[in-house]
Structure formats: structure tokens, C-alpha cells
């Protein structure tokens, strides 16, 4: 038997797993080989050293373990409830949040708009806007004549000495009564109105003429039937 094989057997012998058939062979080899005998003694001594120097745990090990265990259990419980919330939060949660945020934002904007409101000021000939004192600001829905917003029938604006009803929502936003751009727009709308009126009149005339022709042809047709 070679020494390498014998040393493999020695290792198995130390662990008490060497087959009985190999035990005799190993014994024969050890009787003849000093080195392998020394090897076996060293391994046995190494085992004794390991066993004798088993490291000692700190005294407070179990106390620290208990603390960590409690923490781990709390963490595990926390994770569970967190997951539950995640599962509960459906896929439309973001939309609800977005809707709520939008509603709050709009309410805030509306409140600010109602508080500050548009400014009422007298038209100036030059068109330039004078500085407005805080006392000139007027509340929106004041009863009587003082409120800026009145029922549609009462809402009138003054432009170039004429009075006209406001029909366009677009004008509400920027109308001041002093801006020349506003006056030009009124003139343009008037011109368009005139043109539309003319076109409408023409259509009415044509319609009337066609109706007359239709009546005449219908009467002739009836007369022909009677003749036959």
C-alpha cells in the first residue's frame, strides 16, 4: 500500500468509517511506515487541539439574540402589513390621488380669483391703465349695483360711447372698454354681422322665389290632369 492511500485510510479511520477489509491493510502499512504512524499521531493531536480550544460565546449572547429575534419578528410583521396595503391599493389609486389634487388646485384657483377678482375702472381716453388702489377693488357678488358680476341681462359694457350687450365669453376675460383692440374687434364683428345679414336676406329671397315656382308648376300639373 502506498503512503497516499494509507493516509486516506487514516483519515477514514479517525472518523470510524473505514471498512473492516481496509483496516487490516492499514495496520500492516503502519507497522512498516514510521512517517504514516507519525502522520496519524499528528492528526489525532490536531483533533484534540480543535476540541480543546472550542471558542466561548459572550455571556450576553442569548440576551442579544432575544433582542434581535424580537426585532426580526417586528420587521416581519411590518412587512406583512405593508404588503397588505400594497395589495389593497388598486391600480386606480394614482387616478384618485390625481383627481383629488386637481380638485383642490382648482378650488384654490377659484377662491383666489373670487377674492382678488377683476378690477373695475373708468375708461381713460388715452387707453393707458392708471394705478389702482386696493380700495378700488370690488367684491364679485355684491347685491345691488356694486357687484362686478351681474345677471346676463344687466351685463353691459361701454365702448366708444355706445352700449352693447356682451355675448362672447372671450370678451369677458380681457374686456376693459378702453383697449383699441377691443374696439376693432367690435367693428369687425359688426361688419361680419352685416355680411351675414345680407347673405341671409339673399337666401330668404331665393327660397321665396323657388317656393313660388313650385306652386305654379304644381297648379299647372293639376290643371292638365283635369283636362285629361
Amino acid at each position: 500500500m502506498r503512503c497516499n492511500k494509507a493516509r486516506d485510510y487514516i483519515s477514514q479511520e479517525l472518523d470510524a468509517v473505514l471498512p473492516p477489509a481496509a483496516t487490516g491493510k492499514l495496520r500492516d502499512h503502519l507497522d512498516a511506515c514510521d512517517e504514516c504512524r507519525s502522520y496519524r499521531e499528528d492528526l489525532a493531536l490536531g483533533q484534540r487541539l480543535i476540541a480543546a480550544t472550542e471558542p466561548q460565546l459572550p455571556d450576553n449572547f442569548e440576551w442579544k439574540l432575544q433582542l434581535k429575534l424580537n426585532q426580526a419578528l417586528q420587521d416581519a410583521a411590518g412587512q406583512t402589513s405593508y404588503r397588505w396595503h400594497e395589495e389593497r391599493g388598486d391600480r386606480w389609486a394614482w387616478l384618485r390621488n390625481f383627481g383629488a389634487a386637481t380638485a383642490v388646485g382648482l378650488a384654490a384657483v377659484l377662491a383666489l380669483a373670487m377674492f382678488f377678482g377683476p378690477l373695475e375702472q373708468a375708461p381713460t381716453p388715452t387707453g393707458s391703465r392708471p394705478a389702482v388702489a386696493a380700495s378700488d377693488r370690488r367684491p364679485l357678488f355684491q347685491p345691488g349695483a356694486g357687484g362686478l358680476y351681474r345677471p346676463a341681462a344687466q351685463r353691459m359694457v361701454s365702448a366708444g360711447g355706445e352700449t352693447m350687450g356682451r355675448t362672447s365669453g372671450l370678451l369677458d376675460r380681457s374686456w376693459s372698454g378702453t383697449n383699441t383692440g377691443d374696439l376693432r374687434m367690435i367693428q369687425r364683428l359688426r361688419a361680419e354681422n352685416q355680411q351675414l345679414k345680407a347673405i341671409l336676406l339673399q337666401y330668404q329671397r331665393n327660397t321665396e322665389m323657388m317656393r313660388t315656382r313650385l306652386d305654379t308648376s304644381a297648379a299647372e300639373a293639376l290643371d292638365l290632369q283635369h283636362d285629361q
Partner: peptide, 30 residues
């Protein structure tokens, strides 16, 4: 605890780390 600590300490060579890993092992067991 003793067997685990002895095994882990001889693997990692650092007593503090070995203690932590022993605790971690026992926590996982629970």
C-alpha cells in the same frame, strides 16, 4: 449556539462577525 459559533468563527475568523452570523442563523431557525 456553541457548535454554530465555533464553526462560523473558524470560517470567518472575526469573533464579532461570527457572533452576528450565529445569531442570524438561530433567528432564521425560529
Amino acid at each position: 449556539k456553541g457548535r454554530l459559533f465555533a464553526f462560523i468563527l473558524r470560517m470567518v475568523k472575526d469573533p464579532t462577525l461570527a457572533e452576528e452570523l450565529t445569531q442570524e442563523t438561530l433567528i432564521r431557525v425560529y
